[in-house]
């Protein structure tokens, strides 16, 4: 049994150490794989706020991941082609600067989460799952039919976007920036969970009636959680698009929503480091099993099934079980 705090720091330190070792050994492919772990962990950490804290089983988080990706794709596309984006009276030149792209990704995903949340949170339980899934599909088909930005083929961005003062073409520097963002988001999640808002949200998940009796609106709490969650996943989408220098409708696909949820569950729902552990296991399985068989997802399915049926706290739950009282 390990204290959760040490586990959290240990996992992050291990990730960083692996990346630095790979840098020393000049293994840039390994750094890219680790960067993928960090970005997927970030996306799952976003989902974990809705799922773990708010109890909102969203099967449509690919919407935000995709919107973040397309925010990057569209801004960089207009910048690289020197074709300004005309939005009515507004003319935007596009951008190749990460901070600008990130803010756009966050704003767009948060706005989408607000609208989807307002509609979906009118319902609960199984309706909520199906509706979020359906909205995911809506964005997927929309992106396929939107020929101006590549339609089904997606958009390629030739050069990775820049960050002031750093060289993003160097894999370790890009890893560093992603890792820093992940650490900040995890710190924020931790603070959020302990804040009055987090406590109220936790209560709204467990006994909404009591929250209402003390004068708080469970709907508002959940909506805010959903918006924050969507914004973080959107930011991860922008980074993921930058990692691949490519966006396509698959970023909106329902499989991706399912995978994000799998990352959270593999690690452990509602556990701070759960998404990171989940993403690391997922990418490790993909790299290891994927080398052995083209059908590695069968084994992913079997592992997932066993975890759901027999190890409900996920991997973090196995290593550092929570005390009695946790549901």
């Amino acid at each position: 049994m390990i204290r959760e705090r040490y586990l959290n720091l240990g996992v992050l330190a291990l990730l960083l150490a692996l990346a630095l070792l790979a840098r020393l050994a000049d293994q840039s492919f390994t750094i890219t794989v680790l960067t993928k772990v960090v970005i997927l962990a970030l996306a799952a950490a976003g989902l974990n706020i809705a799922l773990g804290l708010g109890g909102l089983v969203s099967l449509g988080h690919a919407v935000f991941f995709g919107l973040g990706g397309y925010a990057m794709g569209i801004l960089a596309f207009h910048a690289q082609n020197f074709a300004p984006l005309e939005l009515g009276p507004l003319t935007i030149a596009g951008s190749k600067s990460m901070p600008v792209i990130w803010l756009t990704a966050i704003a767009v995903s948060a706005l989408a989460a607000l609208v989807i949340g307002l509609l979906s949170l009118r319902t609960s339980g199984v309706y909520f799952i199906m509706i979020t899934l359906a909205f995911g599909q809506m964005f997927y088909y929309f992106s396929i039919s939107w020929a101006a930005y590549g339609g089904e083929d997606g958009l390629s961005i030739y050069i990775r976007n820049g960050f002031p003062g750093l060289n993003m073409l160097d894999p370790i520097q890009f890893f560093g920036i992603c890792f820093a963002v992940l650490c900040l988001v995890l710190l924020f999640s931790d603070r959020l969970a302990r804040s009055p808002f987090g406590l109220a949200l936790n209560a709204a998940r467990q006994v909404p009636v009591r929250v209402e009796t003390v004068g708080l609106s469970p709907m508002r709490l959940k909506l805010l959680a959903f918006v924050i969650s969507g914004a973080i996943t959107g930011l991860a989408g922008a980074l993921y698009a930058d990692l691949n220098r490519f966006v396509s409708p698959t970023m909106f696909s329902w499989q991706l929503s399912g995978e994000l949820m799998v990352l959270v569950i593999l690690g452990g729902v509602g556990r701070l480091i759960g998404p990171v552990v989940g993403a690391a296991i997922f990418v490790a399985l993909e790299q290891l099993l994927g080398g052995l068989t083209a059908f590695w997802q069968i084994w992913l399915g079997v592992i997932l099934l066993l975890i759901v049926l027999f190890a409900r706290g996920g991997v973090v739950g196995l290593i550092a079980p929570k005390g009695v009282g946790h549901d």
Partner: peptide, 22 residues
């Protein structure tokens, strides 16, 4: 709860889809 149902049946999709592809 529904979360467990979603995940377990998602796992079944992976097994069935990849099994059929195999």
């Amino acid at each position: 709860d529904h979360l467990d149902q979603v995940l377990a049946t998602f796992a079944l999709i992976l097994i069935f889809s990849e099994g059929t592809r195999w």
